[in-house]
Design a protein around this nucleic acid. Sequence first.
DNA 1: TCTATATGCCTCGTTATCCTATGTATAGAA
DNA 2: TTCTATACATAGGATAACGAGGCATATAGA
Lengths: 112, 112
Amino acid sequence: MKINKELMKGSTATLVLTLLSKEDMYGYRITQEIKKRSDNTFDMKEGTLYPMLHSLEKDGAVESYWFDTEEGRRRKYYKITDSGREMLNLKQKEWSSFMNAMNSILGEECYG
Amino acid sequence: MKINKELMKGSTATLVLTLLSKEDMYGYRITQEIKKRSDNTFDMKEGTLYPMLHSLEKDGAVESYWFDTEEGRRRKYYKITDSGREMLNLKQKEWSSFMNAMNSILGEECYG
DNA sequence: TCTATATGCCTCGTTATCCTATGTATAGAA
DNA sequence: TTCTATACATAGGATAACGAGGCATATAGA
């Protein structure tokens, strides 16, 4: 299902940090992983992702390094920092609270 | 837990329509119900709610009528329309998709 | 050879939505 | 009298995601 972009607001950093908490990744790969792992529900645009990565780096939540592949491509990898893991922990708790509050009002059952 | 306001974006209409789908309500009461039913997680501001109600009315999702209480207060009640119920149905499905996609990536269990 | 697609990075301006701040008014309590 | 709760409303500011565009390289196909 296509998701209204307003619903995404406030959640993109959580998604990005979650992926980076498991593995260093470069921007383009992040967009692919989000699409794949959400079963095509999310389609994070580059115009959203790159400014977000720069913002996270500015805040010290991630660090970046360039890597040249054998095929001659340049990739900018991002790595989560300790500070970023703390931020992620908070954001996951926030998501959990938000979800529970929404479901309390909507009265929906939740299928993990 | 206090929720980042960005997370609320795109969800306020769903909350309002959900309450109105069960019972006609006036604005001030809606803010109280949302706070109560979310266990104080949500605190919808009047500056958010009233423009939202007017917008929903303009779109034909709700209708309003004035009611004078015995104590001399004027209350503007809102009633959901058939069109509003359809809208709510779509928004609930959208929320469900969004939540499932988020949890797929975050890898969290969900407690209904 | 030329073209299209996929990969890979980036930024600027638009848009939508929520909040803060403010205004009006009445009832009841301190 | 003054404060709080109730009850409606709007204007302006902040912010985040997106659309659209730019730049560049590798590969596949016509």
